[in-house]
């Protein structure tokens, strides 16, 4: 073993890299199992037929989503296939309008607008937008807002109108509801618990 010999370090570089790549491959296979739809952390798309909550779990030492009883979106229970179609459109809305170049989802994206991970659960829908839009339900207020965000500003930074059709807006709301059911290891922490810290 001659540490001045480049070939020693070349062997080191190759073997280190290979070991790390193999470990990463195994971890990725396992992670895919967990994050595929229906995996341990990512519910099926038809979870949107249910109530979704987010509460602190003492054994996990983190906030976790809680799936509750039936609470169909727009008052209509959807089949698994319908839910999948909605999600596909919803995701394409998010990509085609470049939502994540203003907002974050799971904390990834841009920081001009608020994080959307738990947007479905945001008290602002009830407190601000339902009265503002005159809609009776959270999801209807969301659709109205997404279609005409420039009409309902809450502060100086308003959201621009991205010309969502009604179908696109409904699919986006469905997507946001599903997103809030993903187990994100407690991100964001203390959601809606202003002032209370564990």
């Amino acid at each position: 073993m001659d540490i001045e010999d480049p070939s020693f370090w070349r062997a080191g570089a190759i073997s280190t890299t290979l070991v790390m790549l193999v470990v990463l491959a195994f971890l990725s296979i396992d992670s895919m199992r967990v994050i595929s739809v229906g995996g341990a952390n990512v519910p099926q798309y038809d979870v949107i037929n249910h109530q979704i909550g987010y509460t602190y779990n003492w054994s996990r030492r983190a906030d976790v989503p809680v799936i509750g009883g039936p609470e169909p979106l727009f008052g209509k229970t959807v089949t698994a296939a319908e839910a999948t179609a909605l999600m596909r459109t919803g995701k394409l809305v998010i990509q085609s309008r470049a939502c994540m170049d203003c907002h974050t989802i799971f904390g990834n994206g841009a920081y001009y607008g608020p994080d959307l991970t738990k947007s479905w659960l945001d008290p602002a829908w009830q407190q601000i937008w339902m009265p503002m839009t005159g809609k009776a339900t959270r999801e209807d207020a969301m659709v109205e807002f997404l279609m005409h965000p420039d009409k309902y500003p809450t502060w100086t930074r308003a959201m621009p109108n991205l010309q969502l059709t009604q179908d696109e807006a409904r699919a986006t709301v469905a997507y946001l509801k599903w997103l809030s059911s993903v187990d994100t290891n407690g991100f964001p922490a203390n959601f809606g618990q202003s002032g209370k810290q564990p």
Partner: peptide, 22 residues
């Protein structure tokens, strides 16, 4: 290369804290 990839490849994990991953 050895040090950068030795730490950097699995350092990828610092982006897998909150996206639904285990």
């Amino acid at each position: 290369v050895m040090l950068v990839l030795g730490a950097g490849i699995l350092g990828l994990g610092h982006h897998y804290f909150w996206i639904g991953t285990p």
